[in-house]
């Protein structure tokens, strides 16, 4: 039995119409993420990592190929099915938090549950639980403008996790945080992964963030370049990442 939570096979993404100048953002990418993995996707800007994330998160459709998340093929789904799928199976963390600033932290976190028609009482219990896990119980009644960047990202993480998604997709989650808050968030994510069995796929170009992952895929020019596993401690892994990045840069220059 396969325990893959995400399966991507030969996915291509071509922008521009046939006959016109086309750009191949993804040139046949295949990857698999097992349940409980913490995978990083790295690559220079323009390498196609954001496109890959968009395709996986069902926000964009692949031109060719096949994507399966939690046993469901998402490439053939209709608009509304995709929306429902996103709201039930996926959790998102964005670089700029994407909290609704006119809702309280509580309401922001409750939103995915409200959308699924969960009764008010149950929502309350679940929100409080996830808030406790992420250490933001104190600020539930505050508005996003009243809290710090680190707290905002925790709130966003809480919203991404509250409905227990199959996989958490993070797009440069530390991009807008200072180093202290970034470290704290990454530690939390690692903890969620290890102690709560949350599967995570994180796109980043920051080697330090990536060093918290267990496995890292490198993309260049729309294709998978290489893949490394964390076998040593984190600082060692960090160096390993830097080496690959240097290699990538060299191949760029050459």
């Amino acid at each position: 039995m396969s325990t893959a939570v995400l399966e991507v096979k030969d996915v291509q993404k071509i922008y521009g119409k046939k006959g016109e100048s086309q750009s191949h953002a993804l040139k046949g990418v295949s990857l698999t993420i097992e349940k409980g993995e913490f995978v990083g996707i790295m690559g220079p800007s323009g390498s196609g990592k954001t496109t890959l994330l968009n395709v996986i998160s069902t926000l964009d459709r692949p031109s060719a190929g096949f994507i399966q998340i939690a046993g469901t093929n998402i490439t053939q789904m209709r608009q509304n099915q995709l929306a429902d799928f996103r709201s039930q199976k996926l959790g998102f963390i964005f670089q700029d938090f994407n909290l609704l600033e006119n809702l309280t932290v509580y309401e922001n976190i409750a939103l995915p549950l409200s959308l699924q028609g969960v009764p008010s009482k149950e929502i309350s219990a679940k929100v409080n639980k996830v808030a406790q896990t992420l250490g933001i119980s104190e600020i539930l009644q505050k508005y996003p403008v009243q809290i710090s960047g680190g707290q905002k990202q925790r709130a966003a993480a809480a919203r991404a996790l509250v409905h227990e998604p199959a996989i958490l997709l993070a797009d440069e989650p530390t991009g807008a945080l200072d180093s202290k808050n970034a470290k704290s968030l990454l530690e939390t994510m690692a903890d969620l992964n290890e102690n709560h069995q949350v599967s995570i796929m994180m796109v980043t170009h920051d080697a330090f963030s990536a060093s918290y992952c267990k496995r890292i895929l490198f993309i260049q020019d729309g294709s998978l370049y290489t893949e490394i596993h964390r076998t040593t401690d984190r600082p060692q892994f960090f160096k390993q990442i830097l080496d690959v990045l240097a290699e990538l840069g060299a191949s760029h220059d050459g």
């Binding site: 926000l59 709201s87 609704l100 006119n102 995915p112 959308l115």
Partner: peptide, 16 residues
């Protein structure tokens, strides 16, 4: 605009 695009991202149906 940002609010609606964010809602769409986390999977709110268009009809909603």
């Amino acid at each position: 605009k940002g609010r609606y695009s964010m809602l769409r991202k986390i999977g709110v149906r268009k009809e909603l």
